[in-house]
Design a protein around this nucleic acid. Structure first.
Lengths: 110, 110
DNA sequence: ATTATTAATCGTATATTTGCGATGAACTAA
DNA sequence: TTAGTTCATCGCAAATATACGATTAATAAT
């Protein structure tokens, strides 16, 4: 993308929050996270049984979640067990919690 | 096993959370929200002074934030004052808070 | 009226995302 | 070995997102 103007700079928190939000910005990824987090750790195969999407598409979304750090994969041949990454999950919880709680305080006179 | 594609259904919460996350999925929108929420309500013009992006681009991002419901606009000719929409902001706070707190409880044995 | 200011919208170019089927890689079981 | 299972990756097409400059609309001030 063309960037002829001076580049915008972002704080670490802004980038981290946007990155986490991007991982959550597709409903099927929210659904996958709920399945992984709420019930138990899942294998990819179980996800394809629950979500009517091509296996390759689900694998792509899992990769996006892996890249965000919100989940981790554990090889258990021939399957792969995906789990919530507790550390990053809690970091995301803090980031979003702080973002929403600190925003729009008494100074915002709308 | 072949299955019928393109018929994934999502709950209201899944769609709402993904929609809010999408609004937060670009760092400049996070920055705009922080400016609107943290300091004071801003006019668009003040944003263009702080963020080195074309006015049309910032206007596009503001429109995305408007569509998400996280902000609202108040016409104050010839300017437009954008503010956090408290109601939807708090809804987003609850949605994200619940999502992260309910996920990955004791059942998740990773 | 004319001019200035402000912000939305239009048109365009490019980048990214999304989804699928096909294929490949790694491992197991026979 | 051969065949089967599981999941990642490739290649492609379509949709969406991003960013810009130019233009338009609305209003205020002169």
């Amino acid at each position: 993308m063309q960037r002829t103007l001076s580049d915008v700079t972002y704080s670490d928190d802004e980038q981290a929050l946007a990155g986490m939000a991007k991982a959550l910005s597709h409903p099927v990824r929210v659904k996958i996270l709920r399945l992984l987090a709420g019930e138990s750790c899942c294998f990819t195969g179980e996800l394809t049984e629950v979500i009517p999407m091509a296996q390759s598409t689900i694998s792509q979304h899992l990769k996006a979640l892996l890249d965000s750090g919100l989940i981790q994969g554990e090889i258990d041949p021939p399957k792969v067990k995906y789990c919530i990454n507790r550390q990053n999950w809690e970091r995301a919880e803090r980031l979003f919690g702080f973002f929403f709680s600190e925003g729009c305080k008494e100074r915002c006179n709308c």
